[in-house]
């Protein structure tokens, strides 16, 4: 048996996917990246060995911001190419607009005929990313998933600071004013959605089937809000958080050839 392994070391989570020859997922691993990408890469290798991966028959492609820290990778491919490729596989279409909300980056990727055609990334700023959501959730003493659930019941609050640090102070002053958690959570999600929508405005999403990948794809409320704001249907599925790793594993299959 041949193993096509994709390892996506993101800023927050490391995702690993093993595909067999017929491109079926045989293993999924998810773990925090922690402070050392190299150590995480080592831990992934051990875990895969335990799962019975035969390294003599394995091809490995690394992606994500920690891609250069996987010493046993045969190749590094950027997460933009991998997310595009992975999303095509997951959503069964070669023409997609991929919204990937990751830990430190939000990416919008246009794929035509299975090839990345154009992409936009956020500037060096965490507004509109998973990190923004995480920090705000911490401030509200809830998990990011809980924050999204709370947001569904809230309304009427908007967070105007684009800078995460200032937005946190803004949230703290809202707490101080006695604003409900639900309303603040609404403001947080609203801020992310607006930021993503502004970025998306630079691409013609109307021409594509739109899908959501990355760590926030599991949050139905966020997806709904995106649909509403962008005025297009947005697809998501549980495996979409592995899109980068799946794309990398598909690239590994190509490396072997």
């Amino acid at each position: 048996m041949k193993y096509n392994i994709g390892i996506d070391i993101g800023s927050t989570c490391a995702k690993t996917i093993v595909l067999n020859e017929t491109k079926e997922i045989i293993h999924r691993l998810l773990q925090p990246t922690g402070w050392s990408s190299v150590e995480t890469a080592g831990a992934i290798r051990e875990k895969l060995t335990e799962l019975g991966v035969d390294w003599d028959n394995a091809a490995v492609v690394a992606t994500g911001y920690g891609r250069i820290s996987v010493p046993y990778a045969d190749k590094c491919v950027t997460e933009i190419t991998c997310h595009g490729r992975g999303a095509c596989h997951i959503f069964g279409s070669d023409n997609l607009a991929v919204i990937d909300i990751g830990g430190q980056d939000t990416k919008l990727i246009c794929v035509e005929d299975g090839m990345v055609k154009d992409f936009i990334m956020n500037d060096k700023c965490s507004a509109g990313t998973g990190k923004f959501l995480e920090i705000m959730a911490n401030t509200l003493a809830v998990s990011p998933a809980q924050l999204c659930e709370l947001a569904e019941k809230g309304g009427g609050v908007s967070i105007s600071s684009m800078c995460t640090v200032f937005a946190e102070s803004e949230v703290i002053s809202l707490i101080g004013r006695g604003e409900s958690k639900e309303n603040i959570a609404f403001g947080v999600v609203d801020s992310i959605v607006k930021k993503v929508a502004t970025q998306a405005g630079r691409l013609n999403l109307q021409d594509f089937k739109v899908c959501l990948t990355g760590g926030l794809c599991d949050f139905p409320y966020l997806r709904q809000r995106l649909e509403k704001t962008l005025n297009v249907p947005v697809d998501a599925c549980p495996d979409a958080r592995y899109a980068g790793a799946i794309g990398a594993a598909l690239s590994a299959a190509a490396v072997r050839k």
């Binding site: 491919v77 950027t78 190419t81 990345v116 990334m121 500037d123």
Partner: peptide, 22 residues
């Protein structure tokens, strides 16, 4: 968009790398 600092080298590399891949 960038400046003279090296703080965004990682993000720049990802953009440049993805562009060259496409």
């Amino acid at each position: 968009t960038t400046d003279y600092s090296t703080t965004d080298q990682g993000q720049i590399d990802t953009r440049l790398g993805a562009f060259i891949e496409l």
